[in-house]
């Protein structure tokens, strides 16, 4: 299109300048690309570990061990499907992740819009800072906090129940309450983070769009619907696609630490990552943990490609690639 402009350099030097531009832009990406090659692509030979029975040979060097270890096909994957609970574990992982994606998106966008609409600069700033706090705390710490409320012997909730003459609920032996608790905990920790992303996107919106809408007599709600949300669409879709790619991976700390590793809660707290961890702590098998990781990646990859294909059909600008 720029070629149409008058007063540009002659044709041959135009090609030169295009190539120059491409080179310059490529040079910007070069440091990142180099980093990716060295720290991400080079180690990918390790994927073969998922199909090997890794052990040491003489001489004991990693390369030699990888070369000489026996190929075992898909044997390292078998433990994932040997459990009588495989269906439940996969189901838990998918259902929790879907809930997190949907609720996380809706609430974070709502909070970002609310914060943006507050007239008090100070209040908005304060809320936003406070909302970020859970992100600083680890799941281990969060689990102590929950324990202070729910501990059967001395927790605040059972104490209140005792005072009220009710039966005390043994929270850490009662799986039925945990979906709600885990969903709440996840939102509590992550909402602040995604709210910041959406908020930054909102502040990046050109003010002129709002002014134009206001001049046209749009109410505030109409402005949100017709200016804010469309401008957030790209961010929403991108975060959605990225989350879909992690649908087979669970937040380990949430599912392992928050229920305090209580066995009786497994029916609603066991997910793929906790199952693999418990198996790995026992076998210490590099091959089995690689296999589990690879399987999660492949599923994630398929999901992300599918989601991206759908998005690209309807909204090519917002797709990931």
């Amino acid at each position: 299109m720029r070629a149409m402009n008058p007063g540009l350099p002659r044709h041959d030097s135009l090609i030169g300048s295009r190539r120059r531009k491409a080179l310059l832009l490529a040079s910007m990406a070069a440091p990142g690309a180099l980093w990716l090659l060295l720290l991400r692509y080079l180690p990918m030979f390790g994927i073969v570990l998922a199909f090997k029975d890794y052990r040491a040979f003489k001489p004991n060097t990693f390369w030699n061990n990888i070369l000489k270890s026996d190929w075992v096909g898909f044997k390292n994957f078998e433990f994932l499907f040997r459990s009588p609970d495989t269906g439940r574990i996969i189901g838990n992982t998918l259902l929790y992740n879907l809930t997190f994606i949907v609720l996380g998106l809706v609430i974070a966008v709502a909070f970002a819009i609310m914060l943006n609409e507050l007239t008090s600069r100070f209040a908005a700033k304060t809320y936003q800072t406070l909302m970020f706090f859970p992100y600083f705390l680890s799941w281990v710490v969060a689990s102590y906090f929950l324990l202070a409320f729910l501990d059967t012997a001395s927790g605040m909730v059972p104490n209140l129940q005792k005072l009220a003459g009710q039966d005390v609920i043994d929270w850490y032996q009662s799986p039925q309450y945990w979906p709600a608790l885990l969903i709440g905990a996840n939102l509590w920790k992550n909402i602040g983070y995604s709210t910041v992303l959406y908020l930054a996107a909102i502040t990046g919106i050109d003010r002129a769009q709002y002014e134009a809408a206001a001049v046209d007599g749009a109410t505030k709600w109409q402005q949100i619907r017709h200016v804010t949300l469309p401008n957030l669409r790209t961010m929403i879709i991108i975060l959605f696609i990225l989350n879909v790619g992690k649908i087979f991976n669970a937040d380990f700390g949430l599912f392992y630490n928050v229920p305090l590793n209580s066995g009786s809660l497994y029916s609603t707290t066991q997910v793929i990552d906790t199952y693999v961890y418990r198996a790995y702590m026992n076998s210490g098998s590099v091959g089995m943990s690689s296999a589990a990781g690879l399987l999660q990646n492949v599923v994630g990859f398929v999901c992300i490609i599918a989601a991206n294909t759908v998005v690209r059909r309807f909204d090519p600008d917002s797709s990931l690639f």
């Binding site: 044997k75 078998e78 076998s283």
Partner: peptide, 10 residues
């Protein structure tokens, strides 16, 4: 090892 992994989880 496959059985063991499933069994420890149970």
């Amino acid at each position: 090892q496959v059985e063991q992994s499933a069994l420890v989880n149970v």
